[in-house]
Design a protein around this nucleic acid. Structure first.
Lengths: 167, 167
DNA sequence: ATAAACTTTCAGTAATTACTGAAAGTTTAA
DNA sequence: TTAAACTTTCAGTAATTACTGAAAGTTTAT
């Protein structure tokens, strides 16, 4: 496998993984491309490499920036904008975890709280609904706490976490 | 909010969360319905409650069974099949984590290994590709290890994990 | 102020994914 | 062994999601 093949394989695999986890393929691929690039890329560069339209590129770069994964960089002497992604994998994981928690998990916790606090009318089915949504709420919050604990160790959080769990 | 509203809100929220994470809405909703049900449900019951077709119900139940989340139960005196889901949230989380790791993460690790072991031809871009995919491979494996460590504590893994990380 | 260089937006369209319903398949009871 | 009761499969269709390209918008240089 030469460089070109390896690069393409990586980008396409990353795109597929994204799709499986509810992340738009183009978005994942743009991130992958930037992630292995030695220097910031322009919109033209990205369009060219991934064979996608300007509109698509623009919209997905915006999303990546909203997520805090990609940033604009100014290249002196150049008029157009250039983009880079966070290059540190652990930092990347932290950002993704935090964002998905904030955007997708928090609202669900809110619903679980509402649902699990309905009035117990004494029927078995109501009791079950309350019990199960309470348990789910607890789990979700525990996982969120756990994730934040790990992720907030910032420096080498993963290694630290693994070590602690070994005991 | 009465029982009916709460139930519907829970089921629809769970369905939406599924969609966001790449899980078919109907599949998530069937699981949610079973999760708060006081007794096993038949295909008819599910179709009726969620207003979905027989085909859709059948296919998604199959998938849930493949994942090990739902099981058939025989109700004595009844000819048709009935279904239940795992009711313990931690066990549920363990199963989902294991399955998604096995189906979706492992294959990616394989690709990362292949890509990161291409021959270093001395160019900067090849070095970067190797470096970054190696880092990603390491991260993925660490996360997988971490997850398995947590999840294999079986009894109350979450609480145990949180406690250890508190230190 | 004007225009060239660039980016964003979005209506229309394409691609993907999910769903239906009925035919085919299977199991059970008599 | 037949037929009723049930489940699965899958071709066709609907719904959703993603993408394009060009017009509108913005910035920068002169």
């Amino acid at each position: 496998m030469d460089y070109k093949e390896a690069k393409e394989k990586f980008i396409s695999t990353w795109g597929s993984l994204g799709s499986l986890w509810g992340i738009n393929k183009a978005m994942a691929q743009i991130q992958a491309l930037l992630f292995i690039s030695t220097k910031p890329l322009s919109m033209e560069d990205i369009m060219e490499e991934l064979k996608i339209s300007r509109g698509n590129t623009s919209m997905n770069l915006r999303q990546l920036m909203d997520w805090g994964i990609v940033t604009k960089v100014l290249v002196s002497g150049e008029r157009k904008e250039f983009f880079t992604t966070e290059k540190d994998v652990q930092e990347l994981a932290r950002i993704v975890a935090k964002e998905r928690s904030r955007r997708e998990i928090r609202p669900v916790i809110k619903v679980l709280e509402d649902v699990s606090s309905i009035k117990d009318d004494g029927t078995e089915k109501t009791k079950e609904l309350i019990k199960q949504t309470k348990a789910l709420n607890q789990l979700t919050q525990d996982l969120d706490t756990l994730m934040n604990k790990m992720v907030n160790q910032k420096q080498n959080w993963l290694t630290k976490s693994v070590l602690k769990l070994m005991k």
